[in-house]
Design a protein around this nucleic acid. Structure first.
Length: 490
RNA sequence: GGCCCCAUCGUCUAACGGUUAGGACAUCAGGUUUUCAUCCUGAAAAUUCGGGUUCGAUUCCCGGUGGGGUCACCA
């Protein structure tokens, strides 16, 4: 079998985390099976359409490296569709849906309905009060052929509804096994809306069939509408695809992941400086476990290990703390060049300092960065010394005089550093250690006051790194400043 | 509420019906280091409950409870 999957978002906003994972699973499965993936835009709701959403979607998929073979692509700012089963944008396929809806009417599997939305709302309201299930009452099913023709000719607005037969509908889900639902639970779903657009249910079945989709991998929230789809496949006489409904990604309170409870847009995460690879790695593991104890997986490892049967059944809470940890791991593994590009991108102003200096800050911060959006504040830490107390200059059992003594020595020593030393972190380090060791001083007695003099903080990068980043002039200035503080306090 | 789905540490998860129920994040305690971070060691932390089936259930079955999803001319 030639495997073909699809990701079919509706252009109503940004791609969100759940969508990304669904897309990624579709991608992984297609890859693993040597198949193809389709991207289809489900824009059948004219009201909810958001300008620019398609472009944003394509951009996000491109950035995260989820590639597909068929569907719309953005080429030099214009939308271009590739593939033999297009168009891949549902609003461009209206005629196909209309034709199929009418076919169903002719074969008696669907019927015209002229009920007004007012009547439907009224009906629903009454059913709710009576604690009845809210379903269409088939008011229009009994209409005679003549009457239907007449009303159609008069241009009355209508929809086409699926005629759900009696009995029950069951289907096999790769992740959950057999699921059976009584047809009386299924409403006579509208297939074709009065504006001529199809509803999701008609469009998805028609498209998945004609596009040759073999595996439908999508969120669990669709389970309850599968019977409608199965009924449609049967009505058309088409072969059923394989269904795989993946568990939901949850908020802290276990409800379906939503806005209002934190970021859900993938773009937001990218903007915060999460790496696409880290995001994918993290999100893939929410509901899927390849091997056992490993945590960091490359996309190719995930592809290799991917199997629908390995996907869990229960929802998973999106845990930012673990994402942060993972992102830090990925940052540390980044090739220097790529790392610097990211740093550059997240450095939103020039801070009035040289490129050289920024580069040194980036280099030094690589070990502790969790997200790239921390970059600006990290840079600030090197540029502005917070007000600090003289006492902070003193290391543990040492005292102010001792600190003063070493800082004076350091000041002299640094003043005499050759230019080459200032350019070279290891040389700086070597020179300072030489002072410490040749005088047999406890290292903290020297290094701690140096750190504080240069950073004004108890948590900072190493004094060597601080010297290297600050450079000669600034370093000497800060040491002098610290000495003045000491003098003023005694 | 009807229907459907689900249930292992706080969180993400592992465990052919036989394990001291494993790992990771977070937490806490040590160690390394000049601090933070990294790194290393360790601690605390779970099979929702009740019935079966079985020599033996986290694992299979039934029920309760709990959580979620869904009930549109939205997807």
């Amino acid at each position: 079998m030639n495997v073909k999957t699809r990701f079919a978002p509706s252009p109503t906003g940004f791609l969100h985390i759940g969508g990304l994972r669904t897309a990624f699973y579709n991608y992984l499965f297609a890859r693993k099976q040597g198949g193809k993936m389709v991207l289809r835009i489900e824009d059948t709701d004219q009201q909810r359409y958001v300008e620019g959403a398609i472009e944003s979607l394509l951009r996000t998929l491109a950035i995260t490296g989820i590639i597909y073979e068929e569907g719309p692509f953005s080429v030099n700012g214009t939308l271009e569709q590739r593939g033999d089963h297009g168009p891949y944008i549902q609003s461009q396929r209206l005629a196909i849906y209309q034709k199929h809806a009418k076919e169903l009417v002719e074969s008696g599997k669907a019927y015209y309905c002229f009920c007004s939305s007012d009547r439907l709302a009224q009906l629903r309201y009454q059913q709710e009060i009576a604690k009845m299930p809210t379903k269409y009452d088939r008011h229009c099913l009994s209409l005679s052929k003549e009457e239907i023709t007449k009303r159609l000719e008069q241009g009355e607005s209508y929809v086409i509804r699926l005629l759900v037969p009696e009995g029950e509908t069951s289907f096999e889900d790769v992740i959950r096994g057999r699921i059976t639902i009584a047809n009386q639970e299924v409403d006579d779903q509208v297939l074709l809306k009065s504006d001529g657009f199809p509803t999701y249910h008609l469009a998805v079945v028609v498209d998945d069939h004609y596009m040759g989709i073999t595996h439908i991998i999508r969120g669990e929230e669709w389970i309850s509408s599968v019977p409608k789809h199965v009924l449609l496949y049967r009505a058309f006489g088409w072969e059923l695809p394989v269904f795989a409904h993946v568990p939901l990604i949850l908020n802290e309170d276990r409800s379906k992941l939503s806005k209002r409870q934190g970021d859900v847009a993938v773009e937001d995460y990218l903007a915060k400086g999460y790496l696409p690879e880290a995001l994918l790695n993290f999100i893939a593991l929410l509901g899927f476990n390849p091997k056992g104890n490993q945590e960091i997986y490359s996309v190719s490892e995930l592809t290799e290990e991917f199997a629908l049967e390995k996907i869990n059944k229960s929802g998973a809470i999106f845990n930012r703390e673990k994402l942060d940890w993972m992102n830090g791991m990925y940052i540390r593994q980044l090739p220097e060049e790529t790392y610097l590009e990211y740093c550059q991108k997240f450095t939103l102003s020039d801070f009035g300092v040289s490129q050289e200096k920024l580069q040194r800050i980036y280099h030094v911060e690589k070990e502790r960065l969790v997200r790239f959006d921390e970059i600006p504040s990290k840079i600030q830490e090197y540029l502005i010394i917070p007000e600090y107390d003289v006492a902070l200059l003193v290391w543990k059992k040492s005292d102010v005089l001792d600190a003063k003594k070493h800082m004076e020595a350091l000041l002299r020593m640094c003043t005499d550093f050759p230019e080459a030393t200032w350019e070279d972190l290891p040389l700086i380090e070597k020179a300072i250690w030489q002072y410490i060791e040749s005088n047999e001083i406890p290292s903290g007695n020297v290094l701690w006051p140096l750190r504080v003099a240069l950073s004004g903080a108890q948590h900072s990068s190493s004094p060597f790194e601080l010297l290297w980043v600050c450079g000669k002039e600034e370093s000497l200035q800060r040491l002098q400043c610290a000495l003045q503080k000491v003098a003023a306090s005694s």
